[in-house]
Write a protein that binds this DNA or RNA. Sequence first.
DNA 1: ACCTGAACACCGTTCAAGT
DNA 2: ACCTGAACACCGTTCAAGT
Lengths: 235, 235
Amino acid sequence: MAPSTRPAGNRRERPAKPALTRAGIVDTALRVMAAEGLDRVTMRRLAQELDTGAASLYVYVRNTAELHAAMLEELLGQIDLSPVTADGDWQDRLVQILTSYTAILFGHPGLAQSALVTRPNGPAYFGLVDGVLALLAAGGIPGGRAAWAVDLLLHLATSAAAEQGTREHAIDTQDEDEALLAALRDAPAGRFPHLAAIGAGELMSGGGAERLSWGFHVLINGVIQTPRPEPEATS
Amino acid sequence: MAPSTRPAGNRRERPAKPALTRAGIVDTALRVMAAEGLDRVTMRRLAQELDTGAASLYVYVRNTAELHAAMLEELLGQIDLSPVTADGDWQDRLVQILTSYTAILFGHPGLAQSALVTRPNGPAYFGLVDGVLALLAAGGIPGGRAAWAVDLLLHLATSAAAEQGTREHAIDTQDEDEALLAALRDAPAGRFPHLAAIGAGELMSGGGAERLSWGFHVLINGVIQTPRPEPEATS
DNA sequence: ACCTGAACACCGTTCAAGT
DNA sequence: ACCTGAACACCGTTCAAGT
């Protein structure tokens, strides 16, 4: 309203130093992550990128964990929730949105790791939870049971991504796998008879995607079959 | 065999500085963790405790992640595997050993967190896996399916502990819960109808133990019902 | 209210040099 | 082979002081 009192020349020229905002910080964090990985997303590095001091960021985010949660919340906006209202089998549609969620996390495994420990709680996450609940309701799962089931389903997706992510950015993944395989083979069959019977190969078999999809179906089938311990509220 | 060439006076007197060994490092790490939490178990702090320099530890452990894995492996020795060979329903016995595993992790939540990302691979862990496989075999689960199921079951236990652990050592757990509850209540019912229908209370209801036990049963029931995608190897 | 520089109190890991 | 001190390259967070 009143004419700007700032120094001349800032009318519409490129603002060399954009105002600090929470959204700006989160976007910068996502950009740095995309370019160099989550490890490099530190308060100090972000501050440098934003041409300020690390201390300034604490006006907008409480700490690093909250920053990570905000980054994930931002990405969660990309989830395709259209299967919620589409036609077709509810189980298939449920797996579709879980897969959409998983795809985002697989693209940003560091965030998946932090999501295991700090649950996101913004509107995008709520939208996902609401979508899963909608499909469980469509499948006739009582509300109380569904409330618990959401957690199980999202958790499986999150931890699969976190795990796969750790593996991929570790340089010595193959070494570790070989070590584990070797350890499994060396495990005395007398002491670990069932392990020996099944064999190391079988234990580690299957692509991540195949296993995850199987896991989703295990959970869905299990949820259908398993009432909550307490007398369930009727929807 | 040959008489010691070390300085006199070390025959059987208290060794002020015990020899560095991997086992000694791991034990010290466990002691520090018990006293002050996993955060304080740093290479530098451990070195100080062992009266040496941090660099010396790298002769025995590759890095911090490996140290954590070794600590967990040590604790896993305490798991009660007796239900594996006991009488009774295989599902009950399976839940018993999973609960025994969980109890250890709940006592050391920081380690649970690191186990989500770096799988343990020592004999104690193999013993646990073998026990779970034994009970799944007792339940008639085909070997190939059982191999995948172990992962799911142990993962659920691990992540429940990791999560609960984070909460407990966070000072602002209650603040966070209140914030989440408030956010859930504020979530517009029009936008998140199913969330609103179920209610925040329901979504977060249930003690950890109750929910975890339900989760185990969901998985077991699901595993019973859900064949692996490929034609399964016959036992 | 917002922003800053500087400080506090640390980290993991590597490496050349010693024994 | 094992052990060490010192160095490299960083961290998150707080706080008094400025605007």
